[in-house]
Amino acid sequence: MFVLTGTQPPEPIVVEIASDGPQWWEVVGALAPFAVLLAAALATVTAFATLRQRATADRASLE
């Protein structure tokens, strides 16, 4: 058993990290906020197109 004294520094612990890079699901998960933003933009464009078409149809029905 190794006992530390006040004059001996502890031996460093060597940590090796082995990584092959991110997995595919980590990349897809990182792109999730962009997908939400894209879906919101598409919903906004669709909503404005629907409102414009409805307004056009309402004007045509009044004539």
Rank of each mutant, 00 (worst) to 15 (best):
M1I: 15
F2M: 10
F2G: 09
V3T: 09
L4G: 03
L4C: 06
L4I: 05
L4F: 07
P10W: 02
E11Y: 08
P12L: 04
I13L: 06
I13P: 01
I13Y: 07
V14C: 03
V14M: 13
E16L: 05
I17G: 00
I17L: 06
A18E: 12
A18C: 06
D20A: 02
D20T: 02
Q23E: 14
Q23Y: 06
W24C: 07
W24K: 10
W25L: 09
W25C: 01
W25K: 04
E26H: 03
V27E: 11
V28T: 07
V28L: 15
G29T: 03
A30W: 15
A30M: 15
A30V: 07
L31T: 03
A32L: 11
P33G: 01
F34C: 07
A35E: 02
V36C: 04
V36Y: 08
V36A: 06
V36K: 09
V36T: 03
L37F: 07
A39K: 07
A40G: 01
A40F: 14
L42F: 12
A43I: 08
A43T: 05
T44G: 14
T46M: 13
A47D: 03
F48H: 14
A49M: 01
A49W: 00
T50R: 02
L51Q: 10
L51P: 01
R52Y: 09
Q53I: 13
R54K: 13
A55W: 06
A55Q: 08
T56I: 12
A57V: 06
D58R: 01
D58E: 15
R59D: 15
A60C: 08
S61K: 12
S61C: 10
L62D: 14
